[in-house]
């Protein structure tokens, strides 16, 4: 599948780059200006608006996606840096019939309110549980410390991650 980034450039002579990036398991070829941020590639060119833009300065974590499995703030990564890499976003977490346990956990434990930070939280939490299936509360809090939430006070987010960890380990939640 080829996606051409159609936004006009700042001048006809501005060079563009062609990159191949795998997003949620689908490989796409995209032509874009080298200065385009990864978050804009995802949101505008690919229409994956689940990844949000909060602070522009790598602080709030609303734009967190997984690049080759590592949580990465897509507002401070150029899209061209993703060339040849694998990106996962919140849209890739669930199937039409099944939610990821983290998604279930966030709903069960009231781990979200306005929902704006939630996709980034989910991605950071996903990376944590993939590396550490039985984290302590401190490990959860530390893993999520790059993701700011203004609504919940985090206590229920911690519970949501614990809920998911239980379920993923096959224990009774």
């Amino acid at each position: 599948m080829t996606v051409v980034h159609e936004e006009p450039t700042a001048g006809a002579d501005v060079p563009t780059r062609r990159i191949r990036v795998t997003v949620n398991g689908v490989t796409k070829t995209v032509e874009l200006e080298p200065r385009v941020l990864l978050v804009h590639l995802l949101r505008q060119a690919l229409g994956l608006t689940g990844t949000h833009m909060g602070c522009d300065t790598t602080n709030c974590g609303a734009c967190t996606v997984l690049v080759d499995g590592r949580p990465t703030k897509s507002c401070t990564m150029l899209a061209v840096q993703a060339d040849g890499h694998e990106v996962r976003t919140v849209e890739g977490m669930s199937t039409p019939s099944e939610l990821h346990p983290l998604q279930e956990g966030f709903k069960e434990e009231h781990g979200l309110q306005c929902g704006f930070c939630t996709p980034g939280m989910l991605m950071s939490a996903k990376a944590l549980l993939e590396n550490n299936p039985d984290p302590t509360e401190d490990e959860i809090r530390w893993a999520l410390s790059g993701n700011l939430c203004r609504c919940t006070g985090y206590q229920n987010i911690v519970k949501a991650v614990q809920w998911a960890a239980h379920k993923m380990r096959g224990e009774q939640a």
């Binding site: 994956l48 608006t49 689940g50 990844t51 949000h52 976003t89 919140v90 849209e91 977490m93 669930s94 939610l99 998604q103 966030f106 709903k107 979200l112 929902g115 704006f116 939630t118 996709p119 989910l122």
Partner: peptide, 11 residues
């Protein structure tokens, strides 16, 4: 929550 946890909010 059903839309927010899927990244299907509409901001």
């Amino acid at each position: 929550d059903d839309r927010f946890i899927r990244g299907k909010g509409n901001y």
